[in-house]
Design a protein around this nucleic acid. Sequence first.
DNA 1: CCGCAGGACACTG
DNA 2: CAGTGTCCTGCG
Length: 313
Amino acid sequence: MIKSHNFNLDHTLLSGQVFRWKKKNDAWTGVIEKTLVRLSYEHDVLEIHGGGRGIENRMSHYFRIDDGYESIMRSIKTDSLMSTLLRNLRGLRLIRQDPWECTVSYICATNSNIPSIVNMIENLCRRFGEQLEFEGEAFHAFPSPAKIAAADIHTLRECKVGYRAQFIKATATRILNDETIYSRILNESYQESMDILVSKTLGKKLLAGIGPKVADCILLFSLEKMQAFPIDTWMLRTIVNHYSFVIGEEYVLSLEAKLQFGRSLPPHDYSRISMKMREYFGRFAGYAQEFLYYNSRKQGQLRPMQQKRPLSV
DNA sequence: CCGCAGGACACTG
DNA sequence: CAGTGTCCTGCG
């Protein structure tokens, strides 16, 4: 068991960071590396079933229990909206994911939605992941880069990943040939890391399927760049609705004009907005992003019809 | 049948 | 470079 009063399991696992956890009867089941784990949380105590020796340290690491939560919350409590969210979503935490699994997950996430992403990941694991068992229950580990790199496009497509099949295979091949890339990024600054992830040589992407948004997710969720501030369409709505003063009122107007045909944010605008938000929230901006993101999605569920015009009001 | 959802990419001009 | 068409899937 892990004891912490600054942790909320539901908020953390419902925040859309990870895609392999399932809840049934108050217990969450997921796969960490090669072990199946069942979690339940009650009265400040996280109970862990499965995983064997050392599982507490691993889960503690996974849920970033080592973060100075109170201090981080203070640093991102910059306005009344954040103040409200920090109170209502208390215990929401960033998750420290495996970089490779995180990479594939967010390549799949482009131009998609959560149920579909969950489906893709599950298919990939079933098709390519090592089959394991715990207490008579069968499950699959997340497939290795080698396994994905060796897969053929047709089989990948059977996992319903669509046009992302080429990206996933190409990136797997790249990671397989240079396994030090993640550890190198761990020692780099945010900007340098971003530049590496989206870099091109001779017009060809180093890592296919990874643009600025996907890169920010990978950096924030798996490579210790807590200032990363991923901006998807949900977050853009939130920014326009609540933080136009941060990126500039006039700039918002020009944005609305530019995006009225449902186009995605051009790279230049992405980096500009992302930079402004990082400056506004500080070095733990990524934490702030999670609270805002969780909130925007919760509201979206309540009134789906409002999603028709993303940037209005 | 259409539009769109946690974008990225290759291709023009 | 800035703008544009296209990419697979699932769902309302």
